[in-house]
C-alpha cells in the first residue's frame, strides 16, 4: 500500500511517517521549514511546500499528489489546517473519511480504525473503505529511520483566501510534546501562586510544566500551548505526573499515551487514580517538597 501523509507540524508528520512506514510505502508532504528534518523518518519521498499553505490550497495540492503518486490513502494530522483540508478533500475526491484516528490496520482495502468518541468517554472501532484519515497527535513516537527521503520542492497552489498578516504566538519555552517528563497541574493547585511550589519538582526531574484545561484556558495560570487534553495537546512522555489534576475524561484523552502515570491528589476518589500507575493521596504542598528533597 502507498500512503500520502501530510502535516504542517514536524512532530505530527514524523510520528505519522514512523507509524505508517511498517504498513506500506510512505510519501510525506510537509512545509519548507521542516521537510529536511522530516526526511529522516523513512518516507520514500518528501514533498516540501514552498509558500503559504491554507486549507483549500492544501486540499488541492494533496489531490494532485494523490493522483500523481497513485496512493491508496491520505493521512492528515488533525490540526486546524489538517481537519479543514481533509473535509474539502473528501468532497472533491468523493471518497470516505474517518477522522481523529489513533490506530489503524488494513484487511485488504478495508481499514480498521479506532478513535475517541463522546468527548473521550468511549472508543469507536470502525471498519470502512475510507481513503482519507485525520490522525490524532501522538499516534506513535517519532523514531528516525536509516533511510533518508528524497526531498522534492513543490509550490503551494493559489488559495481563494488572502493572507494579510501573520503574528507568531510567543510560546513559553519549549514544547511539551517533546518532553520526557511532564508535570501537569490541575485546579487542585487552588491558586496561581501554587505554581511556585511545583516548579522545584519540574526542575528536579528536568521536565516541562503543563496544565489541564481549567488551568490553561479558564484561569490562564499557564499558556494555552501548555494545555493537555482533547482540546489541547496530546502527549506521550515517559512519565506524566499529575498534580492536583482530577482526571476528567477529556484530560485523560490527552495523556493516555504516557508510559508511566503518577498522580498526586488529596481526593481519594479522583478519577485520575483509575488512570495512574502510582498514586499518592494527600496534600500536594506537603508531598512535593518531600519528593524534591529525596530526588536531590
Amino acid at each position: 500500500m502507498k500512503f500520502l501523509v501530510f502535516s504542517e507540524n514536524l512532530g505530527s508528520l514524523s510520528q505519522m511517517i514512523t507509524y505508517l512506514r511498517e504498513k506500506g510505502e510512505v510519501i510525506g508532504v510537509g512545509i519548507e521549514k521542516s521537510s529536511s528534518e522530516a526526511a529522516n523518518f523513512g518516507a520514500s519521498r518528501m514533498y516540501s511546500i514552498k509558500g503559504d499553505i491554507l486549507s483549500d490550497s492544501a486540499a488541492k495540492l494533496l489531490e494532485e499528489l494523490f493522483k500523481k503518486e497513485g496512493a491508496d490513502s491520505i493521512f492528515l494530522s488533525s490540526s486546524i489546517l489538517g481537519r479543514e483540508a481533509a473535509g474539502i478533500l473528501s468532497v472533491s475526491l468523493g471518497v470516505g473519511i474517518v477522522p481523529e484516528i489513533n490506530e489503524i490496520s488494513f484487511d485488504g482495502s478495508k481499514a480498521k480504525t479506532k478513535r475517541f468518541y463522546l468527548g473521550g468517554k468511549t472508543v469507536l472501532e470502525e471498519e470502512s473503505e475510507a481513503k482519507i484519515f485525520t490522525v490524532s497527535p501522538g499516534i506513535s513516537d517519532a523514531i528516525k529511520s536509516d533511510k533518508t527521503s528524497e526531498v522534492v520542492s513543490i509550490d503551494a497552489p493559489q488559495s481563494k483566501i488572502k493572507i494579510l498578516s501573520r503574528q507568531s504566538k510567543k510560546a513559553e519555552g519549549s514544547n511539551i510534546e517533546d518532553a520526557k517528563i511532564i508535570v501537569c497541574i490541575g485546579r487542585g493547585l487552588g491558586k496561581k501562586e501554587g505554581i511556585e511550589s511545583v516548579k522545584p519538582l519540574v526542575e528536579a526531574v528536568h521536565g516541562e510544566i503543563a496544565g489541564s484545561r481549567p488551568v490553561c484556558l479558564d484561569y490562564q495560570w499557564l499558556g494555552e500551548d501548555r494545555q493537555i487534553g482533547l482540546s489541547g495537546k496530546k502527549v506521550r512522555p515517559a512519565i506524566y505526573v499529575g498534580v492536583g489534576v482530577s482526571g476528567q475524561i477529556q484530560h485523560i484523552a490527552g495523556m493516555r499515551g504516557s508510559k508511566t502515570v503518577i498522580a498526586i491528589n488529596k481526593d481519594k476518589t479522583a478519577p485520575i487514580f483509575e488512570e495512574a500507575d502510582y498514586g499518592l493521596v494527600g496534600d500536594l504542598y506537603q508531598i512535593i517538597p518531600k519528593i524534591v528533597e529525596k530526588l536531590s
Binding site: 486549507s55 483549500d56 486540499a59 488533525s78 486546524i80 481537519r83 479543514e84 483540508a85 481533509a86 473535509g87 474539502i88 478533500l89 473528501s90 468532497v91 472533491s92 473519511i97 477522522p99 481523529e100 475517541f116 468518541y117 463522546l118 468527548g119 485525520t134 482533547l230 482540546s231
Partner: peptide, 16 residues
C-alpha cells in the same frame, strides 16, 4: 469542531 465527536470536518466539507 464539536465536543462529542471532535471531527472538525464539517467546515471544510461545507466549503467544498
Amino acid at each position: 469542531q464539536s465536543a462529542d465527536s471532535i471531527t472538525g470536518l464539517i467546515p471544510g466539507m461545507l466549503s467544498a
